[in-house]
Design a protein around this nucleic acid. Structure first.
Length: 539
RNA sequence: GCCCCGUUAGUCUAGCGGUCAGGACACGGCCCUCUCAAGGCUGGGACAGGAGUUCAAUUCUCCUACGGGGCACCA
């Protein structure tokens, strides 16, 4: 199957929601969008979907720009670079959506719904009890036009819903999967305009994609089920829908949709771990796509330009690819090895230099170094991704190694819960400020019920990998949100899984034992060489 | 529960009716080597199962199983 390309210029977009750390999934979809646009000489648009006022933040938006640029993606139009179809931030387009919603109400494709959240909740509960499909029951669907207008005019709180056909089916032409049919009876009367006057994803998406003249919607597979709604919106407006291409979802090792619980998903984490952006991009390209070398074998190494030149989206494989850190690291190493030697050092120093933590790290390490060479030892944890806890994993159990008689020793579960609590607190922070980080750690420590020092030790080892480190709060602050969170999640899963924890400790212990045996053997060897007649060493 | 998508080794993939089912990561062995890497060689390891179509199915169709996704005033 080939991807249809209309006569007009190809225009594609990514539409990330600025609600958290810049996600590898965004970069993944962005990569194929950007490559597709370039391949066809079209434009690649970045649109910010910040209609969820509760969760969207400006920091997150900035972080998205930074990370996408880091990985080498450039957009032709977007909130930060402008363009002829702006504004590119949905929160600045409310009037547009409201006007369009109005036309849908007027032409009978949508209707106002005055149902309260409580009523909807009740309906859902009832439906579940009766084992029916959850969905809106159509209570306000047939309200007379005059009543609807009057109640709205009176200022009654309401949403606007799409009037989906009750029967028949809607066929989604997916460029990779062919025709995908959905029974209309399965499809809910989707809310288009929320009671706060802002549109939902579905509405904003369709309106923007049309107004921005998007020709191909290349997005993640999780959207395929809502595409019938989008198709009906296009129809209701009398617009021509774009070509839909649903990409497979990146997966965790257990095949579930990739998540920060089970994988580092923040692009910042990879940047701070010393992954090269071109290696990351290459790795992402390999997820579902492949190219051939001269001998017809799979080609592992290629850059963006190469991807652009022979891109054929219809060759995307549809099984959800597992995000394999081992392979990422291998690719990264391959890139490093392929560089001129001088460049490796150059890139490394540049990477150190572009980091924002030097001042803090220098200060923290200063008191502990006797010579310049000591820096690397003490600063190690500040310039790394995940850590190997080894024998130190035992400190991850709160209080377990405490020398205080009164120490409160937390169970594995309770220790893991303390980490989870801390993670939740840190995730809730809108900015990464020293004082806030400290407050979070102190609060989590206190909530755990353990002595402050014991809880801090567990956090210290989780974040720094060692029981001896510069002051914890400053260290966490310098290590940064992305890396600190990944390490805490790693610690949490280690603490909650007895097998993992034991393995980690047993592994390190085995190394230690081997060393001890080697030393003993060496001692014996020395004794054996003692010449006859010499006094034997004291026992 | 209902709907949709998917299924080649632990993982990423090639394959598009006839192949010794190819490559890569990871894993094991050997070589190289002062160590560790890197590199070279090499080994084990896959078409989820069952029907059908066909002279011939990994490849086409259907069923089953398994995996995933969706069913919000989140995107």
């Amino acid at each position: 199957m080939t991807i249809p390309v209309p006569q007009r210029p190809v225009r594609v977009r990514i539409a990330p929601s600025p609600t958290g750390d810049p996600h590898v999934g965004t970069a993944y979809i962005g990569l194929f969008n950007a490559a597709f646009a370039r391949h066809h000489g079209g434009q690649f648009v970045l649109r910010i979907e910040d209609t969820d006022q509760k969760r969207s933040t400006r920091q997150s938006e900035e972080a998205i720009y930074k990370s996408l640029r880091w990985i080498g993606l450039n957009w032709d139009e977007g909130p930060d670079v402008g363009g002829p179809f702006g504004p590119y931030r949905q929160s600045e387009r409310s009037a547009i959506y409201q006007a369009h919603t109005r036309t849908l109400i007027d032409n009978g494709s949508a209707y106002r719904c005055f149902c309260t959240a409580e009523r909807l909740e009740k309906v859902r509960l009832l439906q579940r009890a009766r084992k029916e499909n959850p969905g809106y029951d159509g209570h306000c669907r047939e309200l007379p036009h005059s009543e609807s207008e009057a109640r709205a005019a009176a200022g009654e709180v309401h949403v606007v819903r799409l009037k989906m056909p009750k029967d028949g089916e809607t066929v989604v032409p997916d460029a990779l999967r062919g025709a995908v049919a959905f029974d209309n009876s399965q499809i809910d009367d989707q809310v288009l305009l929320k009671s706060d006057g802002l549109p939902t994803y579905h509405m904003a998406n369709v309106v923007d994609d049309h107004l921005m003249q998007i020709t191909h919607v290349i997005r993640a597979e999780e959207w395929i089920n809502s595409t019938p709604k989008h198709l009906h919106l296009y129809e209701a407006f009398g617009w021509q829908p774009p070509v839909f291409v649903h990409m497979p979802l990146l997966r965790n090792a257990d095949k579930s949709k990739i998540s920060k619980r089970k994988n580092p998903t923040s692009l910042e984490f990879y940047q701070r771990s010393g992954i090269l952006p071109e290696a990351m991009l290459n790795f992402l390209a390999l997820m579902g796509y492949s190219r051939k070398d001269d001998q017809g074998h799979d080609l592992e190494q290629f850059d963006f330009e190469a991807l652009v030149s022979d891109l054929d989206l219809s060759r995307i494989s549809l099984g959800g690819p597992v995000f394999d850190l081992d392979k990422l690291r291998w690719i990264n190493g391959m890139y490093l090895r392929a560089m001129p030697a001088a460049q490796v050092a150059e890139r490394t120093f540049a990477w150190y230099r572009e980091e924002d933590r030097h001042a803090v790290v220098g200060q923290l390490v200063q008191e502990r170094v006797a010579d310049l060479g000591d820096f690397a030892h003490h600063a190690g944890p500040f310039y790394a991704g995940t850590l190997d806890y080894g024998l130190n994993a035992r400190y991850l159990l709160v209080g377990a190694t405490s020398k205080k008689k009164t120490a409160v020793r937390l169970s594995r579960r309770a220790s893991a819960a303390m980490f989870e609590d801390l993670i939740a607190r840190l995730e809730a922070l809108t900015a990464w400020q020293l004082a806030d980080v400290e407050a979070c750690v102190r609060a989590a420590a206190e909530a755990s019920g353990a002595a402050l020092g014991d809880a801090l030790m567990a956090v210290r080892v989780a974040v720094c990998g060692r029981p001896a480190s510069p002051p914890l709060f400053e260290s966490m602050f310098a290590i940064g949100r992305a890396v600190a969170l990944v390490r805490l999640r790693q610690a949490a899963s280690l603490a909650s899984d007895p097998r993992l924890l034991q393995d980690a400790i047993a592994h390190a212990q085995a190394d230690l034992d081997a060393t001890r045996r080697a030393l003993e053997a060496a001692d014996l060897a020395v004794q054996a060489q003692v010449p006859a007649g010499a006094p034997s060493p004291a026992p």
